[in-house]
């Protein structure tokens, strides 16, 4: 089971509003591997992540999460997702801890939230340096801090595959370094990580492989380098 590839996209085509956005993308992320997905605006980075989790229909090609297509995939507890520009705030106040606790839903399901769930949430908030803000309303945090809460939410599930769509957009440099250390520890314990990034920055030493997208296709390695 451990040897199944966490994420594999084979010749994936995705259309949005009738326009092709991905045109035959191949992408795999293996166990313990950190892959950076790079490219300009509109190159299809976020579309690739959304197709990977089954949020967008695939026109052609194949997506597999741990060997299973997203539509039939049930082991969502193995996947941690940080959506792009995630809406961490709502119309009603919620604490940092409440938002991060949503990351445990795939584990406890309809059963009550238990001690081990609470421990995992605390550990995840600690990893992003926000444990001391756990009881604060999320509205009281800066944009970068809110983004770190959505990262903690993904980490709280102790996933085997982490998909992060521009997790650093508003995070300051010191925290980017801290996050790089957290992700390195995750990868060391076998987590597969797909990072959508604008710029590599402090993640440099962490990344095993980079894939640069241009209008829905990877740029050949020698050009990207």
């Amino acid at each position: 089971m451990c040897q199944v590839t966490p994420l594999a996209l084979h010749g994936v085509h995705v259309h949005r509003d009738g326009r092709p956005v991905l045109r035959g993308l191949d992408l795999t992320v293996r166990r313990g591997e950190v892959v950076a997905l790079l490219g300009g605006n509109g190159s299809g980075k976020s579309t690739a992540v959304q197709a990977a989790v089954g949020a967008l229909p695939v026109a052609a090609g194949r997506v597999e999460l741990f060997g299973t297509p997203p539509a039939r995939f049930r082991a969502w507890r193995r996947v941690g997702h940080v959506p792009q520009r995630s809406t961490a705030t709502g119309g009603v106040p919620a604490t940092v801890r409440e938002v991060a606790a949503a990351g445990r839903l795939a584990h406890h399901g309809l059963r009550p939230f238990r001690r081990d769930d609470a421990d995992a949430v605390d550990a995840a908030l600690d990893a992003v340096g926000l444990l001391d803000r756990a009881e604060d309303p999320i509205d009281a945090l800066s944009g970068g801090q809110q983004q770190r809460v959505t990262i903690a939410r993904a980490l709280a599930g102790r996933p085997d595959l982490l998909l992060m769509d521009e997790p650093l957009a508003a995070v300051d440099l010191a925290q980017q370094h801290a996050l790089a250390r957290t992700l390195a520890a995750e990868a060391a314990r076998g987590t597969a990580v797909l990072l959508v990034l604008h710029a590599i920055g402090p993640m440099e030493g962490l990344i095993d492989r980079r894939v640069v997208l241009d209008t829905g296709l990877p740029v050949p390695a020698e050009v990207a380098a």
Binding site: H81, P83, G90, A101, A102, L105, F113, G157
Partner: peptide, 22 residues
């Protein structure tokens, strides 16, 4: 009350909620 955590997650962030298998 019974589905508080589930409904909270869906109303808070649908994109994330769907990837927790809800």
């Amino acid at each position: 009350i019974g589905l508080r955590r589930q409904l909270f997650a869906v109303c808070q962030d649908e994109a994330f909620a769907s990837v927790t298998g809800l």
